[in-house]
């Protein structure tokens, strides 16, 4: 099997705080990998190391067959990335942002207009091309960011909480695009705190306090945990490792307090 991402014992230390503590996983090409974990567990840090903008303290890995330590610049040319914090220019219009990133990725002038048209259709951005990005709603902004990360036809797409703060309808529009891309053979690494989204991934990885605590296909993980839903599995993992007692469901919480 060919892997889009392979990492071994990857570790990142900030001062004496270990943000990522020796994690390893391999993602086969063409799969959607859901990277789950509580706040501060080390998801974004791992992603930044994969993209070559953070240097790992130790460990090694390859992305699209390229070494993350040596070939960082080549990796950048071949991956699409959406940062957790909105990273586009709020004072530019949708079109200006797309044009900017297209020329940064070196898309030739001749193909540029054509490629932008494709992206506008794919990410459902038609009709507001000349709107300033700063005034768009959360759902629109995230679709523009997705569009910008797809311009250069990357083989691997890395999305860091792309649907945080996005309403249920826009989330579904967004995930439809993700599945369309996956069908075209693009590998996708996505982090999310929404367990309904996680269930539609091919492979899931749970990270907690910088360590991978579960890894496998959605089916395998559900089987191991007696077919509970992913949200309950997530909570039970956290309970098992820490001493935090988490109340089962939000409805229970309401009943209990009444």
């Amino acid at each position: 099997m060919e892997f889009a991402i392979e990492i071994q014992d990857l570790k990142k230390q900030f001062g004496d705080f270990i943000a990522v503590d020796g994690i390893s996983f391999s993602i086969p090409k063409g799969k959607i990998f859901g990277f789950l974990g509580p706040n501060g567990s080390g998801k974004s840090t791992t992603i930044r190391m994969l993209c070559g903008v953070l240097r790992p303290t130790s460990g090694k890995g390859t992305v699209l067959g390229l070494d993350i330590l040596q070939d960082a610049e080549k990796i950048k040319q071949n991956i699409g990335y959406m940062s957790q914090k909105f990273g586009l220019y709020e004072d530019l219009t949708i079109l200006e942002n797309l044009q900017f990133f297209a020329s940064i990725y070196g898309i030739p002038k001749k193909e540029l207009g054509c490629r932008i048209d494709e992206i506008l259709d794919l990410c459902a951005l038609r009709g507001r091309e000349n709107a300033i990005v700063g005034i768009l709603s959360g759902g629109w902004k995230q679709r523009v960011a997705l569009g910008c990360s797809l311009l250069h036809k990357p083989a691997l797409l890395i999305l860091d909480e792309p649907t945080a703060g996005v309403d249920p309808v826009s989330r579904r529009v967004f995930w439809e695009v993700i599945h369309t891309l996956s069908r075209e053979g693009i590998t996708i690494l996505v982090t999310t705190h929404y367990m309904d989204e996680a269930e539609s991934c091919d492979i899931l990885g749970f990270i907690y306090r910088g360590k991978i605590i579960a890894l496998g296909s959605v089916g395998e993980i559900m089987e191991e945990n007696n077919n509970k839903n992913i949200e309950d599995i997530f909570i039970s993992y956290v309970e098992k490792i820490s001493d935090i007692k988490v109340r089962g469901s939000f409805r229970d919480m309401k009943d209990h307090i009444e």
Partner: peptide, 8 residues
């Protein structure tokens, strides 16, 4: 962050 992840 978005910019330095490009080949610039």
């Amino acid at each position: 962050e978005q910019l330095i992840i490009t080949p610039i």
